[in-house]
């Protein structure tokens, strides 16, 4: 499946293999981010395994976005350690960015570019070669069944289709890890499931998936989930174990029990 590595790709591969001996996609140890006297992320530690679907949950304002920005190489922690795809969040931010994909509900594609232009743009930004972009984009368009829409503006696509395309674009450069920030908000139940089919498929192909969601049924689709409350990771386990621990059969109740004591809320 993988071919036509550029020098940079080869370089990145080695970096990841040397430091990521334990097959961990993300290692986080005592990670902390302080804004003045406010501790947005408070000493969090967790690992994410390669190929895992990891649900990163938390109440509004718990510190998820801040933590995610650090892991995506967009912000420096105040203290603690973390590696993403084997790269250090302090010293190797650019390497991290090359090896991850990112998609959010709020921002994903350029509305005023066509589908194909969006794919080419993202492929180009991530250093995929021109010839490879050509091959992969025509594959992608036909897999999604969007041949007729390929030259239409993204703004003309229904929301559900935009989200599916956005996810495909986020993994177009075959990253090791993809970060999904509330990817399915407002999407209808059928499209939401088609979207999760794509997530399952990506994970089965070895891509680690790090996802936040407010839909508790989607938390169930994850291999493991963590729940952040007031900057700390208050729970981390498989959905089944968490439900057992809280003596309930719904993730909604687990989340409610954990988060109702939260003192913080977002803006």
């Amino acid at each position: 499946m993988k071919k036509n590595y550029s020098n940079e790709d080869l370089h990145s591969e080695q970096g990841a293999t040397i430091s990521g001996q334990q097959q961990k996609a993300i290692v986080c140890n005592g990670l902390t981010k302080q804004f003045g006297s406010f501790r947005a992320v408070d000493n969090i530690s967790f690992d994410v395994n390669e190929g895992e679907i990891f649900g990163f949950l938390g109440a509004n304002g718990a510190g998820k976005t801040t933590a995610m920005r650090i892991l995506c190489g967009l912000s420096y922690p105040t203290s603690g350690e973390a590696t993403v795809a084997g790269f250090d969040v302090y010293k190797q931010q650019e390497r991290i960015k090359k090896n991850i994909g990112y998609m959010s509900q709020k921002f994903s594609l350029y509305d005023n570019l066509t589908l194909l232009e969006n794919i080419e743009f993202y492929g180009g930004v991530y250093g995929v070669s021109r010839s490879e972009i050509k091959i992969r984009s025509s594959d992608l368009i036909s897999t999604l069944g969007l041949q007729k829409e390929a030259h239409k503006l993204v703004s003309e696509l229904p929301l559900g289709w935009k989200q599916k395309l956005a996810f495909s674009v986020a993994i177009f450069h075959r990253p090791k890890i993809v970060f999904l920030d509330e990817p399915t908000g407002g999407v209808d139940p059928v499209t939401r499931r088609q979207f999760w089919d794509m997530i399952y498929e990506a994970a089965a192909n070895g891509i680690t998936v790090f996802v936040t969601t407010h839909y508790m049924d989607e938390a169930e689709y994850c291999n493991r989930i963590s729940v952040m409350v007031d900057g700390r990771v208050e729970a981390l386990d498989t959905p089944a174990n968490l439900k057992k621990q809280y003596k309930t059969n719904s993730m909604n109740d687990v989340f409610y029990e954990l988060a109702r004591g939260a003192k913080r809320a977002d803006n």
Binding site: A59, N60, G185, H214, F255, Y256, R260, A265
Partner: peptide, 10 residues
């Protein structure tokens, strides 16, 4: 309740 967490929704 869109985009609001489980606790606030309840």
């Amino acid at each position: 309740t869109t985009g609001v967490d489980v606790v606030s929704r309840r």
